[in-house]
Design a protein around this nucleic acid. Structure first.
Length: 850
RNA sequence: GCCGGAGUGGCGGAACGGCAUACGCGGCAGUCUCAAACACUGCUGAGGGCAACCUCUUGUGGGUUCGAAUCCCACCUCCGGCACCA
């Protein structure tokens, strides 16, 4: 070819222009109903769930990072004949809407609905195949009424109850969320007032009932870290509950029981003091008159601290003696009682026996207060050694010492026997404790689901009858410049006739934790408008547990655990028949701003996707987000590299539409690689295509999108090398291009649809969409390599590589390795002492001593 | 502090007991162009050497192994969660 004809070839085809093709195909997919799922057909049901977004108004590239690979999974599964259901909705209740309302005097509903409208538009611009017919918006009464309905069912079943519980309280702004308490001095973020604790009557769900069941992960496939974190969060501990009694003193007759939980009943003889949590009810009663001032001051101070501070193993232990003693049930010893903040009221019994010799926290406390440390577990021969730290290690030959008749027994056996002994006369029993607490669902806020109960002067707490649901949130809301829940001032909302006696009553003003909303929304997607029940039981039976759930790792313990608890509650009131909500969960990483912080409008580090869409098109962004790293990793956002992915799509465009053109710049353009025949090149291209198909298929299945894209780029680069040669006219070329487009289709749906339509228009074949094609099958015979390269090491160092036929045996491989020139040089006449042929001949290591 | 995760070229990352740095970005050189842009081709971890080639390198320090980025122990740094942000 002459240079002039080259130039003509180059300019002949039009350029890839995403903006002109993407909206057209999105409209076409809507017409085709690509995204709509026939839920009545459950034969090949594949329920793909992505965590629904909070409509914060901070719409940023992070949403694309979460959603577009999920869409690729949906399209990939559809190409495998699965009936995929990919719904979307909005987690629309919550604190940010109220903050915006207080600050800018906008109505939370209006603020939320505006954000939702904008997010809908943006989510559509991704080209994602969400089934919008199934959309759920949690602040819609059509949704939250069922939170209320479910609450009533739980109340009836004894799964909901009311108890006192402390909140962080600001005198001006009411209850504060953790993020609204600022600084070491714990002041209110809005008014700066000192935050205090206040005890309120609040609603709980009895989820600890499921603690043991939640530790069983056999029906749910979590990433290992999530399973481990949930296991630790539930925190099952086995041990004993031991009854200590108080000793008589000047101010107290004694004989009062103090129950403690311990995981180490074997160390009971080493208990030299006792500690009550500041919240423990006995503190008030047992404190000696001359200790009262100091104890009360300490208790008040502890109330201002966070649990994280109190549990810190690093800081110095604090506490005060209350001026009373307890009696150790195993030896009748009087031991002093302290109150200290490192013991929590909400864990175990809120009281501990302190064994400084065998517990690190007790040891540092005892050291600080000069309390006796008595060793009761030791490896024989070491029992009299001085202790510089608590001995907590477990060793097979350690035994109990200084423990009366139990001395000499192993710790396990001794502990068991001590509990058995105490149990005989009711002074102890084997016991299990969990770190998991019941779920506090009350929120003193407006923007949430009203808890459907009424407080009647005569009848007490009365559930709202089912027929009266929903209890609607009033639309007009006046915050009056304060964070205090406006429902508490809304007389029209508050005043109601008691459903039981008809007398005057007040509505409950607390609303529900928004984690309630997110604990069952995937069931509602299946029947979002069902008017008589929250969940369509038949539909749930056919479509759930959800096949695959994707979402952020930041939800590992809270949302992902609450939802499991809730599912078990739904099961126990007869609404679903399954134990777990989802079969498999994948946690993708989080996209941070360039500054490494979470993206938010207030930080000014958000990347607006609209701008990128108009510059590169949705396909480039989708592909770049998948390519930038492993999906479970996330990381700081940087658009550097977007151009590389865009160039790749340009090459795909060129390959598909202009196979015979050549570019200037390559001196060998239009010629096959030196020494490669046309037949050999055709086989090589076919091999590359099918090897790519094999690896790309498994990468889609395991969500390894970054290497999936890398492999597609490699195949495109291979095709580019053959462009303009005789290969480009052969069926192997057409097959490779066809496979490339099919493999790329789930990730870059618009450009592949465009190229597919153009290629098929030329052939006259009947088609509707590349996204309705079947995923191609690997031709394994085409994917086989004829030769392979074997690296050769001498003493673990790479010295040479030999190319050998694929089917060679080890003896022949060794012969060739030892004949390789660089190997001969490296051996320098020495004989290898050992020849290691690794992993079926993948590598050879020659070991030479001396 | 506790629980979980991650540290690899100038940058994003690949390899996860067997060739460290695939793929991409950036950089350098070139083809095309009057020129630029686009596109395309080649080179590109560090140090040494004219070269063939040699030495070093996966947060730090130890260990296991014929062989370690990968497994084990200790430490450092960063990220997520810690129950009222979602």
């Amino acid at each position: 070819m002459t240079q002039t004809s080259d130039r003509r070839e180059r300019t002949r085809i039009e350029r890839y222009d995403a903006a002109s093709i993407e909206p057209r195909w999105q409209a076409r997919w809507d017409e085709l109903g690509l995204h709509r799922t026939d839920l009545s057909d459950t034969r090949n049901a594949y329920y793909l769930l992505t965590m629904y977004p909070y409509p914060s108004g901070d719409i940023h590239i992070g949403h694309w990072y979460i959603k577009t690979p999920t869409d690729a999974i949906a399209r990939f599964q559809r190409m495998h004949g699965r009936n995929v259901f990919l719904p979307i909705g909005f987690d629309a209740f919550g604190l940010p809407a109220e903050n915006a309302a207080i600050k800018n005097r906008v109505n939370p509903r209006e603020w939320t609905m505006q954000n939702i409208a904008n997010m809908r538009r943006q989510l559509r611009s991704m080209g994602a195949t969400f089934d919008w017919d199934a959309e759920v918006v949690t602040c819609d009464p059509e949704y939250y009424r069922w939170n209320q309905w479910l609450f009533l069912k739980f109340l009836e079943a004894g799964l909901a109850y009311r108890a006192k519980s402390p909140v962080d309280w600001c005198p001006n702004d009411g209850t504060l969320a953790r993020e609204q308490v600022e600084g070491a001095d714990r002041h209110c973020w809005r008014c700066g007032a000192q935050v205090e604790k206040r005890e309120l009557d609040q609603w709980y769900l009895r989820v600890t009932k499921y603690a043991d069941e939640l530790l069983d992960f056999s029906e749910i496939e979590f990433p290992d870290p999530v399973r481990i974190m949930q296991t630790n969060w539930i925190g099952r501990s086995e041990g004993g509950e031991i009854v200590f009694t108080t000793a008589a003193s000047d101010h107290h007759p004694g004989g009062e029981e103090i129950r403690v939980f311990t995981t180490r009943p074997d160390t009971l003889f080493g208990a030299t003091f006792m500690v009550l949590a500041p919240e423990h009810p006995l503190v008030e009663r047992l404190t000696a008159p001359d200790r009262r001032t100091e104890v009360e001051a300490y208790v008040a101070k502890a109330a201002t601290e966070t649990e994280i501070e109190r549990l810190s193993a690093e800081r110095d232990k604090t506490g005060v003696p209350i001026g009373a003693d307890a009696i150790n049930p195993v030896n009748g010893e009087r031991i002093p009682i302290f109150v200290a903040d490192y013991v929590l009221g909400g864990y175990g019994t809120g009281a501990i026996m302190a064994v400084p010799a065998h517990d690190e926290r007790d040891f540092s406390f005892a050291t600080r207060f000069g309390l006796p440390i008595r060793r009761v577990v030791a490896v024989p021969g070491t029992e009299d050694e001085p202790m510089a730290a608590a001995y907590v290690a477990h060793s097979a030959d350690e035994v109990l010492v200084n423990s009366g008749e139990y001395s000499g027994l192993s710790a396990d056996e001794g502990g068991r026997r001590i509990v058995e002994w105490l149990a005989r006369d009711g002074r102890g029993r084997p016991a299990v404790t969990y770190r998991l607490r019941d779920w506090l669902i009350s929120r003193q806020r407006y923007w949430g689901t009203p808890i459907p109960v009424v407080h009647c002067e005569r009848c007490g707490i009365v559930p709202v009858p089912e027929a009266d649901l929903p209890v609607l949130l009033p639309d007009t809301v006046d915050y009056a410049g304060s964070g205090v829940n406006p429902l508490t001032r809304d007389e029209a909302f508050l005043n109601v006739a008691c459903p039981s006696c008809g007398g005057p009553a007040r509505r409950e003003t607390d609303t529900m934790d928004t984690f309630i909303d997110s604990s069952w929304y995937w069931y509602r997607y299946l029947s979002p408008h069902k008017a008589d029940e929250p969940i369509d039981t038949d539909m749930a039976e056919g479509w759930t547990p959800v096949e695959q759930y994707t979402g952020g790792a930041e939800h590992a313990v809270m949302h992902l655990l609450y939802a499991r608890e809730f599912t078990k509650m739904l099961r126990d009131v007869g609404l679903v028949q399954q134990n777990e909500p989802w079969r498999r969960v994948f946690n993708q990483g989080q996209i941070l701003g360039l500054d490494g912080e979470r993206m938010s409008k207030s930080r000014g580090n958000v990347q607006d996707p609209d701008e990128l869409v108009s510059r590169y098109g949705a396909d480039t962004i989708r592909l770049f987000l998948m390519f930038m790293g492993p999906w479970d990793q996330g990381g700081p956002w940087s658009p550097t590299g977007m151009g590389g992915v865009h160039r790749f799509l340009n090459r795909v465009w060129t390959i598909a539409l202009d196979p015979h053109g050549v570019e200037p710049g390559d001196p060998d353009a239009g010629r096959l690689p030196a020494g490669e025949s046309e037949a050999a090149a055709a086989i090589a291209l076919r091999r590359a295509a099918h090897k790519t198909l094999r690896v790309v298929t498994s990468e889609y299945e395991s969500f390894k999108f970054n290497t999936m894209v890398a492999h597609l780029i490699e195949l495109a680069n291979t095709l580019m090398r053959y462009r303009g040669t005789a290969i480009a006219g052969r069926p192997e070329w057409d097959e490779a291009v066809r496979l490339l487009l099919l493999m790329l289709a789930p990730a870059a749906p618009h450009i592949t649809e465009e190229l597919w339509s153009r290629r098929l228009a030329a052939t006259g074949r009947d088609w509707s969409s590349i996204h309705r094609e079947r995923w191609p099958a690997v031709d394994e015979t085409a994917a086989v390599d004829e030769t392979r390269e074997v690296p050769v090491q001498v003493n673990g160092k790479l010295r040479d590589k030999v190319v050998v036929p694929a089917g060679i045996d080890d003896a022949e491989l060794q012969r060739r390795v030892l004949a390789a020139p660089k190997v001969v040089a490296a051996l320098a006449g020495r004989q290898p002492d050992r020849v290691v042929v690794a992993g079926g001949g993948r590598l050879v290591n020659l070991v030479v001593r001396s």
